[in-house]
Amino acid sequence: MPKTNNFPPELYVATDNLIQNLLASEPFLAYQKSRVQYKSDSQAHGLIERLSALQAELRRQQTNGSVTQADIDELRAVQAQVQANATLIAHASTQQEAVNFLREINQEISQLLGVDFAILAKQSTC
């Protein structure tokens, strides 16, 4: 893990320890496993890329008013393939489990601190 400048050493150790334990927790082990499977599954990647490209194309056509029933049918067909793909289903569900676990952890950290840690940690980008 890269060292962050001016970061209190005790907090660095505690953060690293939290990270290691999060990574070794059941929800994150399952998520990491599904991520590895997803990265090595070219069919799943292809489906997501195709869905993304079709959605972008449909948005473009909507502004021109040139969407056809065939375009919509094609999008629905790819959406159905995505929803039926085992790798993508596993990736989505394990990610949601990991997010739920992270929220639980954040809630408890925030209760101990008396302030929402995630709110303080958010990056203002707008």
Binding site: M1, T15, L23, Q95, R103, A118, A121
Partner: peptide, 16 residues
């Protein structure tokens, strides 16, 4: 640091 290690954006995942 947490986000980079776990592969999820911590703040965004926690609803912020």
């Amino acid at each position: 640091m947490i986000s980079a290690a776990i592969g999820l954006n911590y703040a965004a995942s926690c609803g912020a």
